[in-house]
Nucleic acid binder design. Structure first.
Lengths: 262, 262
DNA sequence: TGTACATCAGTGAACGCGCGTTCACTGATGTAC
DNA sequence: TGTACATCAGTGAACGCGCGTTCACTGATGTAC
């Protein structure tokens, strides 16, 4: 009948698929609860320690019951990975959306800081997606799209900047070749395969942005996560710790580097 | 008696502590074999899969026998971590030593490439020291010194460059403040705590190098390992893969960035 | 509107696995006199 | 140089643990007529 039953209508906002059966709603609810508990354990112990049995125990279920919801532990992990990618991306996107569209440098910096803040708040989720791979786990294709969201966001900022003419147009006198960042942005030769890779990537995520700038953005992208990983994984202890100022400094350098000067 | 026994004198180079007892030599030998087998399993399976029982099995011993050599699994891990730090550092130092002392930029680049090459050849060892921390494992203080060797090496290259006057002395006209790398090297203000951190670090590993350059080297350092991690952990698949040219490009940018122009 | 059947969530027991670590022991190696 | 004792490497059994996954089952929910 696909009817509306007069049960515990959760007083949340009107759900899209309203004409759902009680069973379907229960299933969604429990799937959500499983993921939440798994995320809790992930946050507390790390991915390697995440166990189906512990999740079931905590939910008051028997471990085999979870198999109604996730065919295996790896599938649960996959769901968490997707959620984590979505969470970082969402927090960066929120930070970006708060700023005026034309504040390119500020947007770039805000994204960097939002990502770092998320990582510090969720170190194990960060490690799950940007740390060493979980042994024996092979990331399926479903993770590709959410993983790309952050890259797409950075691409959009650059794209907006270039579309608005905020690129290096004004100041492109190559006086110190190979040394002046802004000059380099458009006049640089990219070695070997990188030229094609940057062009292809630019076409996807940064239309209108010159390939050398895309290449630099790629560098900046690895830099950003390298820095966050070093901070979270303890490599900065003894040198740049606490790391806030170091991070701010580096992020500013990166903004310069990709051609978004002050 | 601490005498020299007429046993199987391994025909290796004359050992330093020659007057050692047979037992002592056997102990060293077996300790070495345990570490080698453990390293083999680490390379094949990753740190999380490393098990004392498997190591013992492979060596034809009973698992409890390993406890004569390592008081626990964590101590074996610690030994492997130290070896890994020593291995990266040694390979970078070798690359550095092959070049003329005054070829500062080439030395810097050679170190970067040597580290990447080592990482690609030993991905699990790399992950052990630069990846997400092994859950439940707390790195002891013995690992600090070997971990610092790579940083010290980069510091030495910079220190040599500055001592030789290869720093930005020649070209320091701040025409495009905040944009020209070389000019920035000495004229940049470091934010907040970073100034002190960079100064302290410089005093340790880069005497004579201005603090802003040390700060930039710190950025470069995180960049280098960020890039390698991204490559090894599969984050570059679909964008800059294969990554050789990308790496070469980024390394060159980094050399510029720390004030070692062509 | 009421009944007969199909679907599906959750149970409880079990399989088979591998792990780190402890402990009392045997027998070989080293040491003191 | 020879003997008595101390040290230490390696054995084998055991403890106690937690895990992922399968399977036959019960009972509630949903559906077709």
């Amino acid at each position: 009948m696909t009817q509306v039953q007069g049960q515990d209508d959760t007083q949340s906002a009107p759900r899209p698929g309203a004409g759902r059966t009680a069973r379907e709603r229960a299933r969604e609810q429990i799937t959500r609860e499983i993921k939440e508990e798994a995320r809790r354990q992930l946050a507390a112990e790390g991915a390697q320690r995440l166990s189906l049995r512990a999740v079931a125990r905590e939910l008051g279920m028997v471990s085999s019951a979870l198999y109604r919801y996730f065919p295996s532990r790896d599938d649960l992990l996959t769901a968490l990975i997707i959620d984590a990618y979505d969470a970082v991306a969402a927090s960066a996107e929120r930070a970006d959306a708060r700023l005026p569209r034309a504040a390119f440098r500020a947007r770039w910096l805000a994204c960097c800081h939002a990502i770092r803040a998320w990582a510090i708040a969720s170190p194990h989720e960060y490690a799950l997606i940007y740390g060493s791979p979980v042994p024996g786990y092979q990331a399926p294709q479903q993770t590709i799209a959410p993983a790309a969201r952050v890259a797409i966001l950075f691409g959009r900022v650059l794209s907006d900047a270039w579309a608005a003419g905020a690129g290096p147009a004004g100041s492109s006198r190559p006086e110190h070749p190979g040394q002046n960042i802004v000059d380099q942005n458009t006049h640089q030769l990219l070695p070997g395969l990188l030229a094609g890779q940057a062009a292809a990537l630019g076409a996807e995520i940064g239309p209108g942005v010159p390939a050398p700038v895309i290449a630099r953005a790629l560098v900046a992208w690895t830099q950003l996560f390298g820095m966050i990983s070093f901070e979270l994984f303890g490599q900065l202890v003894g040198s740049a710790d606490p790391s806030d100022d170091f991070f701010g400094f580096a992020a500013a350098q990166l903004a310069d580097f990709v051609g978004l000067p002050q």
